[in-house]
Write a protein that binds this DNA or RNA. Sequence first.
RNA 1: GGACAGAUGGCCGAGCGGUUUAAGGCACCGGUCUUGAAAACCGGCAAGGGGGAAACCCCUUCGUGAGUUCGAAUCUCACUCUGUCCGCCA
Length: 424
Amino acid sequence: MLDIKWISKNAAAFDAALASRNLEPMASSLANMDIKKRESMLKLQQMQSRRNELATAIGLAKKNNENTSELEEQANDIKSQIRGLEQDEQYWSNKLHDALSIIPNIPLADVPIGKDETANLCVRAVGSLPVFKFQPKPHYEIGENLGMLDFATAAKISGSRFVFLRDQLAHLERALKSFMLDNHTKNFGYEEISVPHLVNCDAMYGTGQLPKFSDDSFKTTDGKWLIPTSEVPLTNIVCNSSIDASLLPLRFTAYSQCFRSEAGAAGRDTRGMIRNHQFSKVELVSIVHPADGLAELERMTSAAETILQRLGFAYRVMLLSTGDMGFSASKTYDIEVWIPSESTYREISSCSLCTDFQARRMGARYKSSNESGFVYTLNGSGLAIGRTIVAMLENYQLSNGNVIIPEALVPYMDGVKELTRNER
RNA sequence: GGACAGAUGGCCGAGCGGUUUAAGGCACCGGUCUUGAAAACCGGCAAGGGGGAAACCCCUUCGUGAGUUCGAAUCUCACUCUGUCCGCCA
């Protein structure tokens, strides 16, 4: 949610930002709604003030046993006027709120302007690309040959875009979870959290999934939502609260399953576990003072990068362009890992500074003795575990079909150094 | 799922139709006193929004949402959450 006062004062900059996000200008129509809203609010408040005066007068008159019928007649008249004014005020207030609710965040000044992902900027590429003396296989073939990725059984039980991980690969998922959480808690000071996987509408609205992207998530029959990312419960920890500035920054990390309908992705990445309805992810969320937003974005990104470095993957960090950024973000780094079978990089993490955009939606403020305001929120994957498994199967595959376990993970795998087919 | 009890400012807690314009206490801040501190005493102390050049004025908020009333923390209805007991259950 953007500040309507800011929009009214910076109409040109706002419309330019919308244009950079491939949207039509809206500043004047929004400012007009705001004027209408405040006009109706003023009228309503003046009438309410009259009502309160009369009510007090009637109270006093009754106490003195005076006749109040004339006062009550006036009050009744005002009462009916208030009804109408309330409806006006509600109408404009809702109209403005609904309009603001579906407007994305404003990109920061250093974000490259562009229509789509082709305008993204490579900030750095790290690690050397693996060299294979054979044709590297895609992850789903490797996993199925090992007997550890089971799409057929998942199709029978759940449908397409689900998978069973079996045996050592199931263990590997557990190992990655612990490895990542340990890194973030021990080396970067994040608090480990175990989150609810069902949340209410307010939480989904707070982080920006609702109302515009309701088709992307799953809703339960009793009106709750399966989390599309633990960003939702983690960020909403601070909803409707005012945090003492001395407690900032707050840093949370959680492992969770994530559920996405992939409504708009029909036909994309249909094979394998790149794009499933359910996947596991370790998430990073920071709640910071506005002055610390940019530095925290760098810090968070480096926390996620550390995982890739320790696992020995080649990756690059992309600064997303205005046209490719998510709804709530003002600046986003995507981390992309090398996928040998496709000879390309694939997103494995996305770290975003959301400025006060989510904080306004969820009512998350900070206060100190001399200032107060909305906090800045950040979120990032650290990392998507499904895609980490993809990267591991592909980058560390051997010609015999086995897969090397990176050294950093071996202790988490009870000493297993290689995924090997188990004929059972 | 059933029964009962409850939800009031940062915290505790009174109030159950009209000077509540939310008592009182704790915490916190300022002052007096003190070498300094404590104690005591005095004073201050909610948030959000609207109007105004400003001084300042107004509106809303007592779990949430509707309703009754000239007037609601207080009455009615629904819902949410918390506690206790029963049932079921990993």
